[in-house]
């Protein structure tokens, strides 16, 4: 019961033959080899798997690949331009927004969705937004600082 499923991932048209039960995160990691997107839980709660589908952040562990067929997906691998980090990635590095790094791909993708909506963010707004992203290491403090700085940098890059 497999069938070809096509979508655009990080700007490239891709196709992989999968079962209907294949999750988008499995499609990305196992079929396309994009292992930057992580799986941290089995309960749709941790946010390590966050990617963008048609511009919005979603949990790729809680959507089937067939549901995303025809859509446009961006993963953490799609943010940097060559060796130049995306402003949000650069802000995470600058502000020490990670320790082990396991949650980081989801944190960054979630943060970019927020920053696309608003660039001048209060600490409270960032913390509310991170409801669906869990970090076991950092205590969030530097993640919040990084996101505020990354959003400001994205805002001024646009202006």
């Amino acid at each position: 019961m497999t069938s070809p499923v096509s979508m655009t991932v990080n700007g490239k048209a891709v196709t992989a033959t999968v079962e209907p039960r294949t999750l988008l995160v499995q499609y990305l990691r196992e079929h396309l080899g994009l292992t930057g997107t992580h799986v941290g839980c089995d309960t749709s709660q941790c946010g390590a798997c966050v990617v963008h589908l048609d511009g919005k952040s979603i949990k790729s562990c809680t959507i089937l690949a067939v549901q995303a067929a025809g859509g446009t997906v961006t993963t953490i691998e799609g943010l940097a331009k060559g060796s130049e980090l995306h402003p949000m990635q650069a802000a995470f590095r600058e502000h020490h927004g990670l320790q082990c790094g396991f949650c980081t791909p989801g944190m960054v993708m979630s943060a970019v969705d927020l920053a696309q909506r608003k660039s001048d963010l209060s600490e409270h707004e960032v913390r509310e937004w991170l409801e669906g992203n869990i970090c076991r290491c950092t205590g969030y403090h530097n993640i919040v600082k990084a996101i505020q700085a990354g959003a400001a940098a994205m805002g001024s890059a646009k202006a």
Partner: peptide
């Protein structure tokens, strides 16, 4: 409801 990613789906 839930978190932003749950609300997006």
């Amino acid at each position: 409801i839930g978190d932003p990613q749950v609300r997006n789906r």
